[in-house]
């Protein structure tokens, strides 16, 4: 059984990375590198879907910050998907650092946020 996993899908303007299982110091960096490596330059941003995550520790938060910094350097956005009942909220609350990026409850909302709120776009 693998502890945690990442599933990458490409939507029209964004990359969706769905993390599942447990993310800790044993796999966090590798998952972060996978997400950054898979993100095409032309994508507007990345949706990091944490709805399937059962456990996330400080190494996981660190990597989320790392992903955000890498994307920022390339002018890309990061939107996190964290449903209300997710255990990720426990980690964020306990670590007292707030949210490491813009957060939505569903992937659809996140995709809309990445494609740009401005109707002038379409």
């Amino acid at each position: 059984m693998s502890l945690g996993d990442v599933e990458i899908t490409l939507a029209s303007h964004a990359l969706i990375a769905r993390l599942t299982g447990e993310i800790d110091m044993s796999n966090a960096e590798e998952i972060g590198a996978t997400v950054i490596g898979a993100t095409p330059n032309e994508a507007s941003g990345v949706v990091l879907d944490l709805s399937g995550v059962d456990y996330l520790d400080s190494a996981g938060i660190y990597v989320v910050y790392g992903i955000r910094a890498s994307l920022q350097a390339r002018g890309q956005n990061l939107i996190l998907v964290i449903p209300p009942e997710s255990p990720v909220h426990d980690t964020l609350r306990l670590s007292g650092t707030g949210r490491p990026g813009e957060t939505t409850e569903t992937v659809d909302e996140a995709l809309r946020a990445i494609d740009g709120p401005s109707p002038a776009h379409g």
Partner: peptide, 13 residues
Amino acid sequence: SNRGRGLSIMVAA
């Protein structure tokens, strides 16, 4: 700034 979070989590929990 991120590496201290483990300790903050321990203290908070």
